[in-house]
């Protein structure tokens, strides 16, 4: 794919993104493009800005400076108090993207299937009866059809996260943002979530994944973005990042997380 067509179709294009919390410059001058169908894994030490970066892409964090172009909608220098026009664009971006959170954030007063169809009903305006078959279908895809009528309180962490992924898929997103999707899970529950994510990647979903799961990154990622101190220190292939020719700092980092 040549550069110019990448820029027309790339669902994620970030230029000069910067964000501070008070005196703490969490993101400095981030440039990032993700092509359609690409799986990009973002790694880096804690405090390096990974989560802030991914949360800026759907404006759960408001960037101080920089241009974010998601799914063809562009917002420049959003700032802490966005204008009405910017807020409208933010919502358009959010409708075309989806996010999977570290702490699942399933709606506690809704059953699994109600969680999955909530966006279809309240954002896309479908009737509940019309959304239900697709909701059940998506739960079947993540292997949880039999839990359709359970409330989140009765599900394990891994099951909750799979429901959350089905909920993300329900909106037909062009991009899914994963913010440490397995970090809150016990080791034995991570596999089921990672498997669902592998399936998505194979089906060609565009994914940005903040994670410490090195196996997943090695096997599934098209690119590894390594962040440090609020900048992208490396943007490289998994083979290079995990291989013998890797940079010293990525080896230091991997040495820390692999024990």
């Amino acid at each position: 794919m040549n550069t110019s067509s990448t820029h027309i179709t790339a669902p994620v294009q970030v230029q000069g993104l910067a964000k501070s919390f008070g005196a703490n410059h969490v993101l400095r001058q981030i440039d990032l493009t993700v092509a359609r169908g690409e799986v990009v894994v973002i790694m880096g030490p804690s405090g390096s800005g990974k989560t802030t970066l991914i949360r800026s892409l759907n404006f759960l964090e408001m960037p101080d400076r920089g241009t974010i172009r998601m799914c063809g909608i562009e917002i420049a220098d959003a700032g802490p108090k966005p204008s009405g026009d910017t807020r409208r664009k933010m919502r358009e971006i959010r409708k075309k993207t989806a996010m999977v959170f570290q702490s699942f954030n399933l709606f506690g007063h809704m059953t699994a299937v109600e969680n999955v169809i909530e966006g279809m009903v309240s954002v896309q305006g479908l009737r509940k009866s019309a959304a239900l078959p697709r909701g059940l279908d998506l739960l079947a895809q993540v292997g949880l059809l039999e839990k359709a009528n359970e409330y989140p309180g009765r599900l394990s962490g891994g099951q909750k996260q799979r429901v959350a992924i089905a909920r993300a898929l329900a909106m037909n997103p062009e991009v899914i943002l994963f913010d440490e999707p397995t970090s809150a899970l016990d080791p034995e529950l991570r596999g089921e979530v990672l498997k669902v994510m592998r399936d998505l990647a194979e089906k060609g979903m565009t994914m940005l994944v903040v994670t410490h799961e090195t196996r997943f990154a090695k096997d599934v990622a098209d690119r590894i973005v390594f962040m440090e101190g609020g900048v992208i220190a490396e943007d490289t292939s998994p083979d290079h990042f995990f291989g013998p020719s890797a940079s010293q700092r990525s080896r230091d980092f991997l040495g820390l997380i692999e024990d």
């Binding site: 919502r91 989806a98 996010m99 709606f107 506690g108 909530e118 966006g119 309240s122 954002v123 909920r167």
Partner: peptide, 27 residues
């Protein structure tokens, strides 16, 4: 009600009032 409940609703494109009435107030 956890902040994450608001964020999950916002992330799917829900507005303030819908999030309030459908997600936050029932809880």
């Amino acid at each position: 009600v956890e902040k994450g409940q608001w964020e999950a609703a916002w992330a799917m494109g829900m507005g303030y009032w819908k999030t309030l009435f459908r997600i936050v107030l029932p809880q």
